[in-house]
């Protein structure tokens, strides 16, 4: 094994310990009869995302193709169960990754992938940064509770948590819910839902910040911008804004409303949609809508 391969093995160690094994252990627990269907679907999504990270990591040379293949073979049954709980999961949550996921399910994990990224060394630090942030998002129980509910809860369950009939959620209870840290699943209540929403905003904002920073630099290549676009695609399923924007914005509107009622001071001048404006900017980024700067650079290229 040469030094590059050794480093790629060390890189994979972080993925295995921080990302893959915890999700696999959770998935094993959830396949028991007592496991909830909603959570099962979320775990399946998380495992597909991990495959996506491995795929992108192999593309940019951060992981070694053979190591990653061996790892996937080892856990094939868990990551790609024969009977997917819901085949529409791939179509709805991973539209951009659908072709590679379909091939992976057939055991063709990493077909010819040399064409996409040529600046492999340069993208190593970008991948590492994105990956650390991604693992933080994935292992945040509150954010994942919010994601599960947003994506998979029935309308009745969603309304019960967020509807007008629901008695007012006290911010102190949300703050107490924010005490919950770490990866252990949390019970979904209105309080944990709102806390998860706020945590999710933090993760979304941090990821956007990195993209914008790269985008602003004249030294950033188009390939790097493409890399960050793929990173967003990998994680976008967690907030699935194509299908769940209405739900997402419902929560945002409620927070906006609550804050306005707190700020009911005649002396204070503020834009009444202050919070929503920021959320809409975030949503637009996560929906993949090009910024002016991206459009300008793509046009120039």
């Amino acid at each position: 094994m040469n030094r590059d391969e050794e480093l790629q093995a060390l890189n994979l160690n972080f993925l295995v310990t921080e990302f893959l094994l915890p999700e696999i252990n959770d998935a094993m627990r959830e396949t028991r009869p007592s496991g909830s269907r909603r959570r099962g679907a979320q775990l399946q999504g998380a495992l597909f995302e991990i495959f996506g990270w491995m795929y992108l990591g192999v593309q940019v040379g951060y992981f070694h193709r053979q190591h990653a293949t061996q790892l996937l073979k080892e856990h094939y049954q868990t990551i790609f169960p024969k009977k997917l709980m819901d085949d529409s999961l791939i179509r709805n949550l991973f539209p951009e990754l659908e072709p590679i996921l379909r091939r992976a399910i057939k055991g063709d994990f990493f077909p010819d992938m040399t064409a996409d990224f040529r600046e492999q060394g340069r993208l190593g630090t970008a991948f590492r940064t994105a990956f650390v942030l991604g693992s933080g998002f994935a292992r945040d129980s509150l954010a994942q509770g919010f994601s599960t509910t947003l994506n998979f809860a029935s309308e009745a369950f969603w309304v019960a948590l967020t509807g007008e009939e629901k008695s007012k959620v006290a911010p102190d209870q949300i703050l107490l819910a924010l005490n919950l840290t770490g990866p252990a699943p949390v019970a979904v209540t209105a309080e944990t839902l709102y806390a998860g929403f706020l945590r999710t905003l933090e993760h979304m904002d941090a990821a956007r910040d990195l993209f914008v920073e790269c985008e602003r630099s004249d030294k950033t290549s188009l390939e790097e911008l493409e890399f960050w676009r793929r990173v967003r695609q990998l994680q976008a399923w967690r907030v699935n804004l194509r299908d769940r924007k209405v739900r997402f914005m419902e929560v945002a509107r409620k927070v906006n409303k609550e804050v306005i009622s707190e700020l009911n001071t005649p002396d204070l001048k503020y834009e009444p949609r202050f919070f929503l404006i920021k959320i809409e900017e975030l949503v637009n980024y996560w929906l993949g809508e090009a910024t002016d700067r991206s459009r300008e650079r793509t046009a120039t290229a």
């Binding site: 006290a170 911010p171 703050l175 905003l201 933090e202 904002d205 609550e258 804050v259 700020l263 202050f274």
Partner: peptide
Amino acid sequence: GWTGLLFHLSKIGSFLNPILNYM
């Protein structure tokens, strides 16, 4: 905490102060 987060996201910062004593 997330008051700070909201503060920076939204340019407001005090609506949670009365209950921050819980932490």
